[in-house]
Computed example of a mutant assay.
Amino acid sequence: MTALKSKRAFSLGKLNMTRGVMNCVPAMDIWHAVKRHAECDWGDVCEEDWGLNAASLEDDSRLLSIYTASNAKRFWIITEWDRSVTTVLLPEEY
């Protein structure tokens, strides 16, 4: 899926990372993924979730991205509906 450039920017709010991400995902992979998330490149989400994210930019719902690190560890980035917090976490920590 190609990245869609949004006409509407969103705030990441406070950036949080779980202990699992800090222990298992290389730091540069995290930062590259956060940048992609902020640019509305949702990574490996399915087509349905890609569409939900596009709608979320209009109705201020939660945003979800899924990425795979260079060490093959999958991780998520979630920005809450009110844009106050963005959390980087492992799926099993959800």
Rank of each mutant, 00 (worst) to 15 (best):
D60F: 13
A69T: 10
I78T: 13
M22F: 10
L89M: 15
S11K: 13
A3Q: 10
D29T: 04
W50A: 14
D49C: 09
A27S: 13
R36W: 08
R8T: 13
V45T: 05
A72R: 15
E80N: 15
I77D: 01
A38V: 00
Y67S: 07
E48T: 11
L64I: 15
S11C: 04
F75R: 05
D82Y: 08
D44M: 10
A69C: 10
H32N: 14
A69R: 10
D82S: 05
G13A: 02
I78A: 02
T79V: 06
E80D: 15
S84T: 14
A55N: 06
M17T: 13
N71R: 09
W76S: 08
W31G: 02
N71A: 08
A72C: 12
R36H: 11
L89D: 06
F75K: 06
C40H: 09
S6V: 06
D41A: 08
K5P: 00
T87R: 08
K5W: 01
T87C: 08
G13L: 01
K73T: 15
E80S: 09
L57M: 12
H37T: 03
A55R: 13
S65E: 03
M28W: 07
R8N: 09
S11A: 14
M1P: 02
W31F: 13
D29A: 06
K73P: 00
S6I: 04
P26E: 04
R74D: 05
V88T: 09
D82I: 07
M28V: 11
K73V: 15
E58D: 15
I77P: 01
L57S: 02
F75M: 04
T68A: 07
D82F: 08
V85W: 00
R83W: 06
C40D: 06
W31A: 09
A72E: 15
E80I: 07
S56W: 00
E92H: 12
S61A: 13
I78E: 08
L12V: 07
F75L: 05
R62H: 03
N16H: 08
G51M: 06
W42D: 03
I66W: 02
W81I: 00
A9K: 13
V85K: 13
R36G: 01
I30G: 04
G51I: 03
S65R: 05
H37I: 04
L4E: 12
M1N: 06
D44W: 01
V88Y: 02
E39P: 00
W76C: 12
V45S: 03
S11Y: 01
V25Y: 10
A38M: 07
D60L: 13
D60H: 14
V88I: 15
W42N: 03
F10S: 02
L4N: 09
A27I: 09
L64K: 14
V34F: 01
E58R: 14
W76Q: 11
A33Q: 01
N23T: 12
R83G: 05
W31D: 06
R62Q: 14
A54Q: 14
T79Q: 04
M28Y: 08
T87G: 04
W76Y: 14
V25L: 12
G51Q: 12
W31Y: 11
W31R: 10
T87N: 07
A54L: 14
G13F: 03
G43A: 04
M28Q: 15
C46P: 01
G51D: 08
C24M: 14
T2S: 09
E80A: 05
P26L: 03
S56K: 01
L52A: 08
G13I: 03
S84N: 13
S84H: 12
